[in-house]
Design a protein around this nucleic acid. Structure first.
Length: 547
RNA sequence: AGGGCUAUAGCCAAGCGGUAAGGCAACGGACUUUGACUCCGUCAUUCGAUAGUUCGAAUCUAUCUAGCCCUACCA
């Protein structure tokens, strides 16, 4: 990939490799299967995979499924699909639940080392004891149970003797630590619930802080990358690694979170949008999910390039949405064919062109990339141009489109001159009468006079009707209260216009991308059925002229 | 309140004691069969603030300020 900024994690890995601290790189992408992936996850995926690839290492996909009450296989499958779409193949696909037995054994080991105990405190009291809001925490009265008793009680917990919440297993660390994560954190809780992978085998489940470092160690992960909010969990991560007698010694490194202007990625927000029916689903093109962006027409390369070029640091950053669009334009520029589409048609009659005659001109599919070939484009007596490409009186000297009395080039065809403007009873322009000049045909190197610009068109009798969906991402205020986010959703985030495209587009395929001349980049809507052409706008052109 | 982290242009971001890369955005100009693309030019005398060390500081030290995160039997 281009624009690959160097970053602090790459530097750390390089140094460790050179000094022999590690002899290879193995990273992991560890999503919890409880949500659809969004562009924020894409950063974790791309960073983990690209970093490993850079050092000839590998990456595992590990489903972090230690809380079955929130998880589902629906998400497991969606995540696998997203990863595949982005073009990454994990070395292994694993589940945290693969290691439940080994994790349990490590918990028993901690008990035997007198580093863990079964606690009977209820949730509220336990929480109050850990954070007294005033200096050190308070030790649980159960903190000093004997190893034998703890061993017995933990076994009973596993055997299902107790109800949810009745007991927990806690690590015995330091109730006076200023870092509350170290004040005897709960490492196992009782949860009588069916797990999507292990079904009814377990009724106790390890907490993230205990399970994660162990899973990393079991898999031999060298670098465990996560976001910045886990930074003060790192001492606990290391405590687990150091006390559980594991072979590997993975290292946790944190980075800042990525935000994008106009895109809110809170799980809860996305879920509410879907549940309340405000969008058509997680793959609604306005959603920041990977499936949404994909349906909108974003390409994996554009997303990769966006992530790599925005860099990586410990700062929580908010990148302009325009940056994402730039990366897409950059990716599509030489790949997308550039046919004509008219979104707001204005009828033009070429009065000196024979009635009923159609001729075909050659049009390069992409002026900058001849390898994309050519197609035939119809020209005839009646054509459509964009409403905005005509202004009765030339508004200013910068105007490079059609006006009464002026001549413009129809791209790939002829010069036309506007002689007459037809209006309806309200004064609205409904038709233009023009004449064409046969000598000016495209490709003849005619240069006796300069036209007042170049505009695009489609021939009326051969053009295909098409629907254009013009999307805006769901725009919300940065600080909006999620409780009334609905009031802040732009009601015009999805607009539809009916227009025309060239006939050669009749064979569009699912996910084909086009750059419509002067109308920006579009993708074929792969949910469209039958002969109806539907195009979703991905991004517009960089700037549009305003007279 | 305590603990942790961060601070370089409108937005990202390199830089790691030797005199502020790059990208996005913006603004000029050239070119053009897309007002696109491309090309050329402009855009931080200064790195959150203030002191200090040094021949020399964005880089080291001290203090201050602002923002984010944590105080779940979530991850």
């Amino acid at each position: 990939m281009m624009n690959d900024n160097s970053n602090f994690i790459k530097t750390i890995m390089k140094n460790e490799l050179e000094s022999g601290v590690v002899d290879h790189i193995l990273t992991r992408f560890p999503p919890e299967p409880n949500a659809y992936l969004h562009i924020g996850h894409a950063r974790a995926i791309i960073t983990n995979f690209e970093l490993a690839k850079f050092f000839n290492g590998a990456t595992n996909l590990r489903f972090d499924d230690t809380n079955p009450s929130k998880e589902d296989t629906e998400y497991v499958e969606a995540i696998k699909e997203d990863l595949k779409w982005l073009g990454y193949t994990p070395q292994k696909i694993t589940y945290g639940s693969n290691y439940f037995e080994k994790t349990y054994e490590k918990a028993v080991l901690l008990i035997k080392k007198n580093l863990a105990y079964v606690d009977d405190l209820d949730q509220e009291t336990l929480s109050k004891y850990r954070d007294t809001n005033n200096g050190a925490g308070i030790e649980s009265p159960y903190r000093n149970r004997s190893v034998e008793e703890n061993l017995f009680l933990f076994e009973q917990m596993r055997a299902g003797v107790y109800q949810n919440g009745e007991k927990t297993l806690r690590a015995k660390i330091d109730m006076a630590s200023p870092n509350i994560n170290l004040r005897d954190p709960v490492i196992y809780r009782i949860m009588h619930v069916n797990h999507h992978q292990t079904k009814d085998k377990w009724c106790i489940y390890p907490m993230y802080d205990f399970a994660h470092p162990l899973q990393d160690a079991f898999e031999g992960i060298t670098h465990s990358l996560c976001s910045i909010e886990f930074e003060d969990h790192r001492p606990l991560y290391e405590w687990v690694i150091n006390n559980c007698e594991v072979e590997a010694h993975p290292r946790q490194i944190e980075w800042g979170r990525l935000g994008i202007t106009h895109m809110i990625m809170s799980k809860r927000y996305l879920k509410e949008l879907v549940d309340e029916g405000l969008v058509t689903g997680y793959d609604d093109p306005r959603m920041p999910t990977l499936v949404g962006l994909r349906r909108r027409g974003f390409t994996p390369d554009a997303i990769k390039n966006f992530i790599l070029s925005t860099g990586l640091s410990k700062v929580n950053s908010t990148v302009d949405y325009g940056m994402l669009e730039h990366c897409l334009r950059e990716d599509l520029k030489l790949k997308a064919p550039r046919p004509m589409a008219i979104l707001h048609p204005l009828k033009v009659v070429i009065t000196n062109y024979p009635e009923g005659q159609i001729e075909y001109v050659d049009a390069l599919n992409n002026m900058e990339n001849e390898s994309l070939g050519t197609h035939k484009m119809a020209f005839g007596r009646t054509i459509y141009i964009e409403e905005e490409d005509f202004c009765e009186e030339k508004p200013n000297k910068h105007w490079k489109r059609l006006s009464k009395g002026l001549e413009v080039r129809l791209m790939h065809a002829y010069f036309i001159k506007c002689n007459e403007v037809i209006k309806d009873e309200n004064g609205k322009i409904i038709e233009l009468h023009c004449t064409y000049d046969e000598k000016t045909k495209s490709g003849t190197a005619f240069n006796e006079r300069k036209p007042n610009g170049t505009i695009h068109y489609v021939e009326a009798t051969t053009a295909l009707k098409a629907t254009f969906n013009l999307f805006e991402p769901l725009i919300l205020d940065e600080k909006v209260q999620l409780t009334n986010f609905k009031e802040h959703i732009n009601p015009h985030s999805w607009q539809t216009v009916e227009g025309y495209v060239e006939e050669f587009l009749k064979d569009t395929k699912k996910e084909d991308k086009y750059q419509f001349i002067r109308n920006g980049y579009y993708t074929t809507d792969y949910t469209s059925k039958g002969d109806k052409l539907v195009f979703n706008r991905i991004v517009g052109l960089k700037s549009s002229f305003v007279s």
